[in-house]
Design a protein around this nucleic acid. Sequence first.
DNA 1: TACCTTAATGCGCACGAGTGCATGTGTCAA
DNA 2: TTGACACATGCACTCGTGCGCATTAAGGTA
Lengths: 120, 120
Amino acid sequence: METACSRSDRDIIDELVEAFDSKFLKTLSEPVRVEILKFIMLNGRADIGTIAENMPQDRSVISRHLNLMQEVGVLTCEKESRHIFYDINCHAFLDKLENLTALIRSCMTQCCPTFCNQKE
Amino acid sequence: METACSRSDRDIIDELVEAFDSKFLKTLSEPVRVEILKFIMLNGRADIGTIAENMPQDRSVISRHLNLMQEVGVLTCEKESRHIFYDINCHAFLDKLENLTALIRSCMTQCCPTFCNQKE
DNA sequence: TACCTTAATGCGCACGAGTGCATGTGTCAA
DNA sequence: TTGACACATGCACTCGTGCGCATTAAGGTA
């Protein structure tokens, strides 16, 4: 313990810890889910069956991954008759990441005294 | 499959998938590790024993968490006699997140045709 | 030397999560 | 009503990993 944050910084860090949505980050840390994300980015909105056809995993597995990604705000889903179409939730996805990045940036400048100097 | 990316976008998406460093994201998705991160932010550079004293987990567990966070570039470590001091790796940490965010932002604007309109 | 402190490592346990199969539910068409 | 199709769900299996205990290794001190 050599350097320390002022009491006012504590609020920012609490806010940061809040922004570390572990469920969100865990969702993005699974390679299979990133592959699904990539597929949708390349091919656009698609239903479960179409996505599953292009993945080695079972249809039920893909279904569960899509469901999870929709829960954490990475994807949107729209039901059309028997099909459920998933698409990238551009705003929610980007907002979450930019929020996290911005918070960490402000934490660094406030809580790492040497940071500004390091940033040549 | 309704919309689709042009072939030139494929490179950006491949780059994006690369940026989805699953080990990095997985590291940040563990609440205990975020708690350790918070502790170091609040109290500055600290050794394993000091951090472990302030956590419910066993010293060996903290040691392993710190080691992992150092591996993925979130922390730096410096050995001083018997003590190993860990600190936030401001640059590497922030750079990784900003890189990921920037790539996703460019993917959104290129691959989600409706994105610009949605952005009111 | 012997002893203490600090950290790393090996081991086993417990829980969570990804997976595939089998089955259930709901929707649509004939 | 019957059948086909799309997706969800329950179950069991496997693997990864967080965890704590016990031990070892390494550095410092008397």
